[in-house]
């Protein structure tokens, strides 16, 4: 068994992931993370790669509707699943209510953490349509903002909640 792996231990698979409603297929190393697949093979560079070991939350995406960290999932594990990145939330002409609220409440500074924050907030509002400040802070506690702009992020999520509910 070991001989096959001695020179080039690469094990490759073809994966097909539905990303933002579009089917994306590529042949990848089994060790390729979902984050790298989404950026390099599917072209969704809104997936930000920060710590690469599941701590900072910048690479958060929705998989089958649930927020997950794409740097500690392998692309092969998303084969056949549905993924939503920040590009799937809205576009420049029609922002998602959360994105609109982030703009209005100055909830992004450098913007690196923003995609992960938005997707964590989407997951929160699905379970908890009218969250308290404590609930928002808890839901976003796994997403780090190096600009430390947390207060405005929390305000934006709470402000967006009624529009997400009615939308």
């Amino acid at each position: 068994m070991e001989s096959e792996l001695t020179d080039d231990r690469t094990d490759r698979r073809t994966v097909a992931v539905t990303v933002n409603g579009r089917r994306c297929t590529a042949e990848v190393d089994v060790r390729k993370t979902l984050a790298d697949f989404l950026r390099e093979d599917a072209g969704f560079t809104g997936v930000h790669v920060g710590c690469e070991h599941g701590v900072c939350g910048a690479c958060s995406v929705l998989m089958d509707g649930q927020v997950v960290r794409s740097c500690i999932l392998f692309a092969v594990q998303a084969d056949g699943h549905e993924v939503v990145t920040v590009e799937g939330l809205g576009d420049e002409d029609a922002l998602n209510p959360l994105q609109q609220a982030f703009v209005e409440h100055h909830a992004l500074q450098c913007g690196f953490c923003t995609p992960g924050m938005l997707l964590a907030a989407v997951d929160l509002l699905k379970h908890c349509p009218d969250p308290t400040e404590t609930q928002v802070r808890e839901a976003l506690s796994g997403n780090l903002c190096m600009c430390t702009g947390y207060a405005n992020i929390v305000r934006a999520v709470r402000a967006a909640a009624p529009n997400v509910r009615s939308g």
Binding site: M1, R13, R31, T33, E52, V76
Partner: peptide, 25 residues
């Protein structure tokens, strides 16, 4: 910060998973 190479298996049943563990010593 990328994982090292490995061989990857996705067994469909517990017995298949146990066989893979036994074979991989």
């Amino acid at each position: 910060m990328k994982p090292p190479p490995f061989r990857y298996h996705t067994p469909r049943s517990l017995s298949e998973a146990l066989d893979l563990l036994r074979e991989s010593s």
